[in-house]
Amino acid sequence: MRLFFYAFMLLAAIVYTYMAFFDLSFLTNRGRMGPGFFPRFIGGFLVLCLVAAIIKEARLGKLLEKEPDGQMRDAAVLIGLAMTFGVLLVVTGYLIATPLFVGAALLYFNSKHLLMNGAITLAAPLTIYVLFGQVLNASLPHGLWW
């Protein structure tokens, strides 16, 4: 996982630096700092630092080391549910996405208390809707079909 994360960061940093050098000018026509002035320094340093960090981790033998398992499965389930919630907000809107997300998360993590889960699944989205939508008059995602 460590290797994957470093590889992802390095790739992103290389793309950023490439764009800073090839899409953005270093100086303007009048010789002032251009839009690429700071990004070039930032990108260049970022790539160098990431390479240095990767070499350091590789030397210490940490890069390919297997991480202690922990509760990775539970964390991954929550991440998956959160991303699905994000997509559902776009498609179905707050009113459907929130009870679905809360209900699914409680069903998975708190499966022994079905009655309580049901009550929270109904009450919490309603309370949040009243707070955000009515009291604070804040905008909530409508979804595609409403």
């Binding site: 919630f85 907000l89 809360v102 993590f109 929270i120 989205p125 955000f132 995602p141």
Partner: peptide
């Protein structure tokens, strides 16, 4: 385990409501 999904919902809607932007979410 009960609090976390609710916090996640509040954080998500709090972020959305600032600029009504799903990209920011």
């Amino acid at each position: 385990r009960i609090l976390a999904p609710l916090v996640l919902v509040v954080c998500t809607l709090g972020t959305f409501s600032v600029n009504a932007s799903i990209v920011e979410t």
